[in-house]
Nucleic acid binder design. Structure first.
Lengths: 126, 126
DNA sequence: ACCTACAGCAACCTACTGGTTGCATGTTAG
DNA sequence: CTAACATGCAACCAGTAGGTTGCTGTAGGT
């Protein structure tokens, strides 16, 4: 319920931004190496500087990253807030799922005699 | 470092699968409503049954969901393991980022006199 | 002043993605 | 047996995504 009501509205673009190997690598690099210029991020990568730029723009669009022009280079840094949003969303789903399981278990335990349909019980009660 | 070494190898496809609004809605529905048939998942959705099927297949490909044919219908259920993988990945990145920040702070505090470059100090030491 | 490195912009190409329609197949209820 | 239902499979289509090349602009070093 709670999961359906709006919390996820903004989450999909974040996941989509993280859903590309190259971009995920960029995020990891920015996380491990701190704010870096495009040229530095391109070095060691298999792709072109322009491709890196595009990916950074996608990440920025999702709010995962932010870049400021500093002199002749532009430094890009991780912006952890949206990352937290995604994390919270996954937490929410996980939690809701386990709640479902527990509720189901309780339900099954509360009516072993109600209809006494053999084969559906978890613990055969002697 | 740790974030670069392999942990993310399988994460990108998971994020990619979650990176679509329709699919995210499906996940939410499966989470809130439990295992359901395709027809039931299609009801209330704007798209075709076939589209739903395709999305389910994508989710299944990422290991997020699993479906078994039961009679004339096939019941699809959430598979929370891969969800956990994604969650752990985000945890890892977040943690690593805060560690970076703390290390940076310690570093700045440990050398206010080393070179004494004015304007970079956090607390002007009188 | 000049050369070089860093970056932005635009056009273009290929492949994949989300979605559709149409038809075939298996299953359950009468 | 037959009708209605739930799926599966295949072809097809438009739009977008990832990537490239080429050119322009601008900031720094010497």
């Amino acid at each position: 319920m709670a999961v359906k009501s709006g919390a996820f509205r903004g989450s999909a673009p974040i996941f989509a931004a993280l859903g590309d190997g190259t971009r995920l690598r960029l995020v990891a690099r920015l996380c491990a190496g701190g704010p870096q210029s495009i040229a530095r991020l391109t070095a060691g990568s298999e792709i072109t500087r322009q491709a890196v730029t595009k990916h950074l723009l996608v990440l920025a669009d999702a709010g995962l990253v932010r870049g400021v022009r500093k002199g002749r280079e532009s430094r890009w840094a991780l912006e952890p807030e949206q990352l937290e949003v995604a994390r919270r969303y996954l937490d929410l789903i996980s939690e809701q799922w386990t709640q479902r399981l527990e509720a189901l278990e309780r339900h099954l335990e509360s009516m072993p005699e109600t209809k006494a349909r053999a084969g559906k019980r978890k613990r055969s009660p002697a």
